[in-house]
């Protein structure tokens, strides 16, 4: 820290000595200026320090967490973790049903939320009249994106589990998660669609394209990587969600694979939660191993989102 301090001071001095010859003549103003500049520099330096500390706390805490988890769990990231069902004996337990549950859920949720979300975004951006109703809908969607996930759990429990009699099934879970990610997908897809230059639409219309032809052949191809980026980020959020699924009653101990969408299920974060809540040290290790698997999954998803975004930035 003191080193940084010295460096900054040096910089200030250098700048000061540079300023002197240029404004040397107007003595009164120079003094006032110099004082002001010094104060501003000090504020600048203080803030810089503050931001550095803030960043370091974040990064260090994350590092500590990661190191702790990896050192605890890496030994248990073995084929058994992927091949075995959960068990009362930690030495035999795996998370096969949770991984498969998460994948099944993704398989239902991804196409569903893509279609609904992108459809809504296209409607709002391209077709809806820019009137009051549209603005209210827009405001609602943005608000929904920030609603706590447990609220979606309650909604899912009432609507899908009870009213629609879907039970505590994979389908109920996937529908609930779809609702949860929809606002995020809609908002990010709208942004991607809005970023397509007007000139590109004009070019299409001027050739005699209808609205839908313009949307499907010009706007969507130009915005698809941006849209997919949003979808992937939303999916990675859903993969890590626990609360709404606990709410609708995903099981914490599932020793079979779901046979169909109406079967009960579990997902990775719930399995991890289950293991964490056991007192034995060996289950803690399992939990850490589960977290590693989940983190790697999320990293891969986010990385592919970044790749897509880079591709998209190149296009525009």
């Amino acid at each position: 820290m003191s080193n940084v301090n010295a460096n900054l001071n040096m910089k200030t001095n250098v700048n000061k000595s540079k300023e002197e010859p240029t404004v040397g003549a107007k003595s009164i103003f120079v003094d006032a200026n110099r004082k002001q500049i010094a104060t501003r520099r000090r504020i600048d330096w203080l803030l810089r320090l503050l931001f550095l500390v803030a960043t370091s706390i974040g990064v260090l805490a994350l590092m500590a967490l990661l190191i702790d988890i990896v050192s605890n769990g890496i030994a248990r990231v073995q084929p058994e973790l992927f091949n075995n069902f959960p068990s009362r004996r930690a030495s035999e337990a795996g998370m096969k049903s949770a991984i498969v549950g998460s994948l099944y859920m993704l398989a239902i949720m991804a196409p569903l939320s893509f279609l609904l979300g992108v459809g809504a975004a296209i409607y709002l951006e391209e077709y809806a009249k820019k009137n009051r109703l549209t603005r209210i809908i827009q405001l609602n969607i943005s608000t929904l994106a920030g609603v706590p996930s447990i609220v979606y759990g309650i909604l899912g429990l009432t609507l899908f589990v009870r009213e629609l009699h879907l039970g505590r099934s994979l389908l109920s879970g996937a529908f609930t998660m779809t609702l949860l990610v929809l606002p995020i997908i809609i908002v990010s897809a709208q942004e991607a669609i809005r970023a397509v230059p007007k000139a590109r639409r004009d070019a299409s219309f001027a050739l005699g394209a209808t609205k839908w032809q313009t949307v499907s052949r010009s706007v969507l191809p130009s915005s698809i990587s941006g849209i997919l980026t949003g979808v992937i980020l939303a999916m990675s959020r859903a993969i890590g969600e626990t609360a709404p699924l606990v709410m609708i009653g995903a099981l914490t101990f599932v020793a079979f694979l779901p046979n169909g969408p109406m079967d009960s299920f579990t997902v990775m974060p719930i399995q991890i939660y289950n293991w964490v809540s056991r007192p034995q040290a060996s289950f803690q290790e399992l939990a850490a191993a589960g977290i590693i698997v989940l983190l790697v999954t999320l990293l891969i998803m986010n990385f592919s989102a970044i790749l897509l975004r880079n591709k998209y930035n190149k296009h525009i």
Partner: peptide, 19 residues
């Protein structure tokens, strides 16, 4: 659409599609 097919337009800024 038929009208625009018969009456083509070229804009101020070249605006090719990203294709």
């Amino acid at each position: 659409e038929t009208l625009r097919k018969k009456v083509g337009m070229v804009f101020q800024q070249p605006n090719p599609f990203p294709k």
